[in-house]
């Protein structure tokens, strides 16, 4: 087979990538209280124990509120940015896009610290809203990237054709552009939701006393006794992420297929 050595290397690399994720369910179902080999026996106790944890449920509710709000806000802002940059040329396009995309390369610690300093300086109380604020900022560049791809794959004359056939500009957008970028919008919503759900640093510093799932997990890691239930929670969380991503990828590809483009593959 062509590139046999390379293929073997790539497979080992994949194993390296997946090693931690594969271990997660193994220990989530292991009845031993210590995370170590050899395995003891099979149990679902950790899941039951986690489901019954009130603090966890509160963290879950918070996380869902934050992730849903951030996903919607980031995607809406992303639509504006993607539409503006793909359709129009305007002065200062480079710097403006640069600032919008900056959270992609800016360490989260800087984002959260500077935002925290301002919020504390203004006397704003830290709560879910402040986390949503930070997460929207963080998710926005990802939304822009996904939506830009979606808007870019559109032939500009499609919109002109609708306009030429007598529709108003808004209706041309609603009847032609929106349905065609809808897979991108769904993909962006799911992606932003996933990012927000998994995000730790901003939530850690900006949530005040409100827990989110990652900060809850972080707080539990100090107690060895709590680790098996955390493995169970982690398993659920990873499963959710994988599921959401698969759906997001499905919509992204459908979008590509719909507009007749060729798939360049992958996010980012």
């Amino acid at each position: 087979m062509k590139g046999g050595g390379l293929r073997a290397y790539a497979l080992i690399y994949l194993l390296f990538l997946y090693a931690p994720i594969l271990l997660l369910p193994i220990f989530a179902f292991n009845s031993g209280t210590v995370i170590a080999f050899p395995l003891k026996g099979f149990t679902t106790d950790w899941f039951v124990q986690m489901a019954g944890n009130a603090a966890m449920r509160r963290a879950l509710t918070n996380s869902l509120i934050i992730a849903t709000s951030s996903a919607i806000l980031a995607t809406c802002l992303g639509i504006f940015a993607a539409r503006a940059t793909t359709r129009f040329s305007f002065p200062g396009k480079g710097p403006i896009t640069g600032l919008i995309m900056l959270p992609l390369v800016m360490p989260e610690i800087i984002i959260s610290m500077s935002l925290l300093v301002v919020l504390l300086g203004l006397g704003v109380k830290l709560n879910l809203l402040t986390v949503i604020m930070g997460h929207t900022l963080l998710c926005m560049p990802y939304a822009v990237v996904i939506l830009t791809t979606a808007f870019n794959s559109l032939d500009r004359s499609l919109e002109e054709a609708a306009y030429d056939l007598g529709e108003s500009k808004w209706n041309a957008f609603r009847l032609v552009i929106l349905p065609l970028v809808m897979p991108g919008i769904i993909s962006s919503l799911l992606m932003s939701f996933t990012i927000s759900l998994d995000e730790f640093i901003i939530a850690f510093f900006l949530a005040g006393n409100e827990p989110t799932l990652p900060t809850f997990i972080y707080s539990q890691l100090r107690f060895p006794k709590q680790i098996p239930p955390i493995m169970a929670l982690g398993t659920v969380l990873v499963l959710m992420s994988v599921l959401l991503l698969t759906v997001a990828e499905y919509f992204r590809r459908r979008g590509v297929a719909k507009t007749g483009g060729t798939d360049s593959g992958g996010f980012l």
Partner: peptide, 20 residues
């Protein structure tokens, strides 16, 4: 007079057939 109000219609180079 904007394009949507002119008595003209266009066949685009790419045809601009709405794929959906």
């Amino acid at each position: 007079v904007p394009a949507n109000r002119r008595p003209t219609n266009m066949v685009f180079q790419s045809y601009a057939i709405f794929p959906h």
